[in-house]
Each structure stands twice: as C-alpha cells, then as structure tokens.
Design a protein around this nucleic acid. Structure first.
Lengths: 126, 126
DNA sequence: TTTGTATTTAAGTATTTGCTTAAATACGTA
DNA sequence: TACGTATTTAAGCAAATACTTAAATACAAA
C-alpha cells in the first residue's frame, strides 16, 4: 500500500515529498538500528542499569537487583535485551557475572548520562 | 518490597550499593523524563517523523503519511504521542495542521539526526 | 446549507512488553 | 557426591503498543 493515501492538498509539494521519500529510504537501516537502541534506553529501568554500569564500570545482576529494588529475573531479562542489542558485554568470575557497557554505543549514550547528572531536565506540564 | 532480594555475595560492597541507591533516588525524575523521550524516539516510525520535521522545518500529517507510506490515522496517533511528550508543536493554516519540532529537546535529538545522516551506524550481528 | 478535504478520535485487535513464580543451569565448596 | 549460591530460562499473564476501520470534528468553498 505504497501511496494509497496520497496527499492531495492543493499546496502539497510533490518534489519535496519525493525527496523526503528518497532520504528516508536511503537511511532505512540506520533508522532501524538507531530506533532499536533508543527503545532499549527508553525503558526507565534499563536506563538506570546503563547509567549505573557507566558509573560503576561493572556490576552483577545481584547488585543491580539490590540497588534498583527489582527481582533478579526481571533484571536478568533486561540485561539479556541489552546484551542482544550489543550495548553491554560481560565477564564471569566464579559464579558471578559482571556486566559492562560496550565502548561501541557509549558515544551515543554518554549525553544521556550527562543529562541525568545535571538533574535539570525541564519539567513541563500541560 | 525494598530489598527483599539483598545481594548476599561474599564480595558484595554494601557501601557501593548504598551510594548507587542514593544516586538513583536523587535523579528519579530525570530518569522518568529522559526515558519517556527516548522511548518516543525509540519507535522507528516516530524517529523518521522527527527526522523529517528537522529536515523540512514543518510538515502536515498528510505529507508524512505520503512520505512514510503509513495511514493517516497511524501518523496522527504518533503525532499525538509526540505532542503529549512536548517534543513537537503545531500551527493551523486553514484545514491543514503543520507540525514542527520544539526547540526544547532538540539538543538531545540532534545527535540522532546526525548519526542518521552519516549512515554509518555499525551493523553488527550475532 | 451541502459538499469535500484534513485531521482527529474511537473501537477493535494482534503483538509486544515487563513483570511474576517456578524450574533449570552453572559453579563452587563441604 | 550433595548442597548452596548466582544466574538464566520458561511459562503465564496483565498492561501497553501500534496498527486497522469507521465515525466524528474542523474548516473552507460551492
């Protein structure tokens, strides 16, 4: 259903619309990848996990569960998503598994952590 | 259920855990607000909408529907979420409604747009 | 007023998400 | 080996998401 709902406004600019279509198509893969990462960071609990991993270098599920007041399985399942998204990696030490942020997407994530530290996001209401 | 699942690892560091708890608690509101924005941008279609609004300054639902190949109601509902999240605003011109990015969160969003333009997100697979 | 265009809203639905509890796995020690 | 700790995985479920179609609203022009 490509353009079943064509914009038929008098003032619609077909050239503009076409150029936009081309741009979007060209970056399709980027949109998919970036939105996947943002949606991982877009969960409050996962954002906290990422923040903590940045601050503490590495943490185990048990620590995170303790800090965040969430059950171990809940934490573990979030960690799996982050791992599947290539945002974190881990090392084993005995029976403990330490998770760390991967360097890869740190450039993207760091501004978020900075914002959190500033604790000054504008709180606006309707 | 605050700390029902206390971390009882031998090597767990109670001081570290407590300091982390305090940090998280102090920034609770920031985590809530930031994760809300990221989860809005974490939807592929909405990310495209935001990107297009940045590029074109303003667009109407009809244009967006046309460019992105999605139904008008689908677009409209995404626009409402973005509006509710204070990420976009709008102006009316006759029966057409033009949406624009708000300045407010542009600083946060612009790096994403830059990444898209670079079209060089590392595509890594399992 | 009637008609048509642009948009939103509502209702219905399939899918995804994020938890819970219980069971499985991995590892270390008695 | 048996037991205990750390973690993951599985199954179940309620809530949220993102679409669909159909109806409602808003505005403008005939």
């Amino acid at each position: 259903m490509e353009s079943l709902n064509s914009c038929i406004r008098e003032k619609a600019n077909p050239k503009q619309i076409n150029e936009c279509r081309i741009k979007i198509t060209a970056s399709e893969a980027s949109f998919t990848q970036l939105s996947a990462i943002l949606s991982l960071a877009g969960n409050e609990l996962r954002l906290k996990i990422l923040y903590l991993l940045e601050q503490e270098k590495e943490l185990c599920p048990c620590d995170l569960s303790d800090i965040l007041g969430m059950s171990i399985p809940a934490i573990s399942q979030h960690l799996r998503k982050l791992k599947d998204g290539h945002i974190i990696s881990f090392r084993k030490e005995g029976q403990t598994i330490f998770y760390t942020l991967k360097q890869e997407h740190l450039e993207l994530l760091r501004p978020f952590f900075k914002l959190i530290d500033q604790v000054n996001l504008v709180a606006e209401r309707a």
